[in-house]
Amino acid sequence: MFKLKDKRIAYAAICIVIVFAVFLSTPALRTPFLDSFRYPFSILAFIRREVSAFVFFHRNYVQKERLQKENDLLKTKLELADEAYRENARLKDILDLKQQSTFRMVAARVIARSPDNWSSAVMLDKGKSHGIRKGMAVVTFAGLAGKVTEASERSSKAMLINDPNLGVSAVIKRSRQEGLVCGTLGSTLVMRYLTKESDIQVSDTVITSGLTPVFPKGFMIGTVVAIGEEFSGLSRYALVKPAVDLSALEEVLIIVK
């Protein structure tokens, strides 16, 4: 069944597998390959966007009408919030409090996604040359989206918050109850390590606590949709619907400073 020639080929294949294993484990060797796929991925992402815009024209039109109304409402609210912000700033000045520093962000486009079903990651079209480094937080206007796990010269890879390997320290905005939010690869996240007495309700807002150094404090993670008890019976968990639509992520912001 196994001829001598076949054996040699199999040995050669094993050697190649080892070489590739070393190659893939070394970011300096791996990242140029990520870069080389940047343009083909950008083109395909563009095609996908244009095709879906054409196919879902009517849905987009209805959505636009709804958003227009929402926009008007939000503009009014923003005016009020702006007034409150100014008042807050004045009061802070009076109290001589140090003003919260603003973040410097870089906008990036999602050009590809992880090809397997075991992880949730995206490839972005910005890299080290744009100031992006490994470990930086990835957000959208809606809230936290993930963190950069790999950065090459002109592209980078980000792990999304619904990946089970990413844990974010979080708090319930209302009750300041702390927990750890992890991904499930599904449409919800799970907030663990909540004590049995924890004050948590459905529709509570979950935000970053700032305890994980990568993620700045106060970023919206999502809203609680269900609460359950852990199998051990010692603690509770909450299912959190992410604020960001992770399956339709197209543009993100990376906090570079």
């Binding site: 893939l24 791996r30 990520l34 992880s114 990651a121 890879k157 990946d163």
Partner: peptide, 18 residues
């Protein structure tokens, strides 16, 4: 094929290559 799958994956080793 394994290499292409690994390069966009999150794990740092050549599981799919092998």
């Amino acid at each position: 094929a394994g290499f292409l799958k690994d390069i966009l994956g999150v794990q740092d080793f050549a599981f799919n290559v092998a």
